[in-house]
Each structure stands twice: as C-alpha cells, then as structure tokens.
C-alpha cells in the first residue's frame, strides 16, 4: 500500500513549506509531520517525503538517519528516554534506568510486547540542575526518585 498524507496533513505540509525561503529548509518539520502521520519513518514514508520535497530518497534517508528524534522503527505509545550524561549520572541516572528496565522487563532499545513502552537512554536534555531526569514523549520528568518513577509508570495507561 502506498502511503499518503491525509488531506489535513497535506494542507499542513503546504503551509509549512510556504513559510521557508526554500522548500528544502522545511525538511525537518515535514519529516516530523510524516512521523506523526505514519507513526515512524519507514522506507515507504521516506520515499513519499522525498517525492513531496522534490528530492531523492537517498537525500531524505541521509537526513532521517542523522537525527535521534526521527524514528525509523515503530516506538511504543510511551517513549521513555532516560538521560545518561555526566550531570545526571553524578546524581543517580543509572539507578533510574535500572529501575525502569526492571519494572518494564525490557532492555534499552526495546519495546514491551504490548507496544506500550519503548525505553531509550539519551544524551543531555538540558535539564542538568534537576537530574536525574527522563523524557516521556513530549514531557520532562525531573528530580526523579525511585518512588517518583514508580508513580509515573503506574500513571501511564
């Protein structure tokens, strides 16, 4: 099945492109749009974006593989990203990651069988004064403790 934007997403695509001095500059926003539409950036999605942007698939693929927030694999409903960089590591990031792993029964880079949670370890998220911290989808969770993590995981339905 060939992928295609919904008419609403297509309108958004046209609006986005029209704001930039050159069409190519809208690459990341358009890829975000595609990721939201299709869930992740499959080879078919990349090909579709390339066609929309008048660029080669190779060029778009090169961009997608460069950025950590552009996913080429499906991710769970909740994408848990635990910061592992020095400031967070100094205040116990490793314990937070270990707790999430044991609670969800998955390793870093894995998704739970029900497709609900994906766990990643990520580099600095500019939240060093309030570490340890993690990002779940769009939201930051800061000053984490074991109890807080357990509560947060429980609250995610």
């Amino acid at each position: 099945m060939t992928l295609e934007f919904s008419s609403e997403a297509f309108k958004k695509f046209q609006e986005t492109v029209s704001r930039y001095p050159k069409k190519e500059a809208a690459m990341i926003p358009v890829l975000y749009l595609a990721q939201r539409e299709f869930g992740y950036l499959s080879p078919e999605a990349i090909e579709y974006v390339a066609k929309l942007m008048d660029l080669s698939s190779a060029r778009v693929y090169g961009v997608v593989t460069f950025y950590t927030m552009l996913n080429m694999q499906p991710v769970g409903k909740y994408h848990i990203q635990v910061c592992r960089t020095l400031p967070c590591a100094l205040v116990g990031a490793e314990k937070i990651a270990a707790l999430v792993k044991s609670k969800l029964g998955i390793q870093v880079g894995e998704t739970t069988p029900d497709g609900k949670f994906t766990l990643s370890e990520v580099e600095c998220l500019a939240s060093c004064g309030t570490g340890p911290m993690m990002q779940i989808n769009d939201d930051y969770y800061e000053n984490l403790t074991q109890e807080k993590v357990e509560e947060i995981l429980k609250s995610l339905k």
Partner: peptide, 12 residues
C-alpha cells in the same frame, strides 16, 4: 520582519 520558529531533531 518575519520570525520563524524551527525545531531541530536531536543532534548536538
């Protein structure tokens, strides 16, 4: 003057 907010995608 037009001001455009552009979001990156995760690359230091």
């Amino acid at each position: 003057l037009e001001l455009i907010l552009h979001r990156g995608a995760g690359a230091y």
